[in-house]
């Protein structure tokens, strides 16, 4: 499979703190890849560089072979990369439907088209009954789904999900896993996800990339990763071994 997203030698410092150091990985088209690692490993910083929030200090990001690093976040979205935020960012004063319409405008020529697209996303994420409510009134689980609906409405080729399972109940996690798997198989959507919920990572991912202290320390299939001593070490601490 050709790589849809390629990250090469990505680095970022924050006033002397090396948040991300020489990170390289690839996400094949049509795959689901997970990015895991302890808190502060640099996962979200990587996401923010791919999504155009930060400009990398060094390295390249390629989408379909084309350099996208250094572009603005809105340009990267229009190039086909949708994202969610770890700390959800609903448009609190707008209705649930309007939230998703904003996303749908990205790939719609008319308002009517955007509305239809948004309605479809709400159905898909099970938010249709809440469509007229202000986003501020949603529960955390619903907000996470709204975040996904909004990102999907931009019709991305590549979806970046930042901890969309965190804070969900087990049944809700299973629903989300099923939804992502359906999106992946039915629509061929490529997904890169940051996740702490191992059950979801194991169930979904084709490949897992492990980061620690800003560097990639392991990469492989979920099974390989689960047996990798370096991974166990970083998760459990050296004294546990």
């Amino acid at each position: 499979m050709p790589a849809l997203l390629e990250v090469e030698g990505l680095s970022k410092n924050f006033s002397g703190l090396r948040a991300v150091q020489d990170v390289s990985f690839a996400v094949p088209a049509g795959a689901i890849v997970a990015l895991i690692g302890p808190n502060g490993a640099g996962k979200t910083t990587c996401f923010n560089m791919i999504a155009g929030v930060y400009r990398p200090d060094a390295g390249a990001v390629r989408l379909n072979g084309e350099r996208i690093d250094g572009r603005r976040a809105d340009q990267i979205c229009r190039a086909g990369v949708g994202r969610t935020f770890q700390l959800v960012k609903p448009f609190a004063g707008l209705s649930v439907l309007d939230n998703v319409i904003v996303g749908a405008l990205n790939a719609s020529r008319t308002m009517a088209e955007a509305r239809t697209q948004a309605e479809a996303m709400l159905d898909l994420l099970g938010l249709a009954p809440k469509r007229a409510l202000p986003a501020a009134s949603l529960t955390l689980a619903e907000r996470k789904r709204l975040e996904v609906a909004r990102a999907l409405a931009t019709r991305p080729r590549m979806l970046l999900l930042d901890e969309v399972m965190a804070g969900l109940r087990p049944t809700e996690i299973d629903q989300m896993v099923k939804l992502l798997r359906d999106l992946n198989s039915a629509r061929g959507l490529t997904i890169l996800l940051i996740e702490h919920v191992m059950r979801a990572v194991m169930a979904l991912s084709l490949r897992v990339i492990v980061m620690h202290h800003g560097q990639v320390i392991a990469a492989g299939t979920p099974d390989e990763i689960a047996r990798d001593p370096a991974v166990l070490e970083c998760y459990l601490g050296e004294e546990a071994l």
Binding site: A51, V53, R72, A73, D74, C77, R78, G82, R83, F85, K89, P90, F91, A92, G93, L94, D98, V102, G103, L105, N106, R150, A151, T154
Partner: peptide, 14 residues
């Protein structure tokens, strides 16, 4: 309105 509510999220939506 998206910008008013959350500019970073608005940017992420293109």
């Amino acid at each position: 309105q998206a910008i008013r509510e959350d500019e970073e999220a608005a940017r992420a939506l293109g």
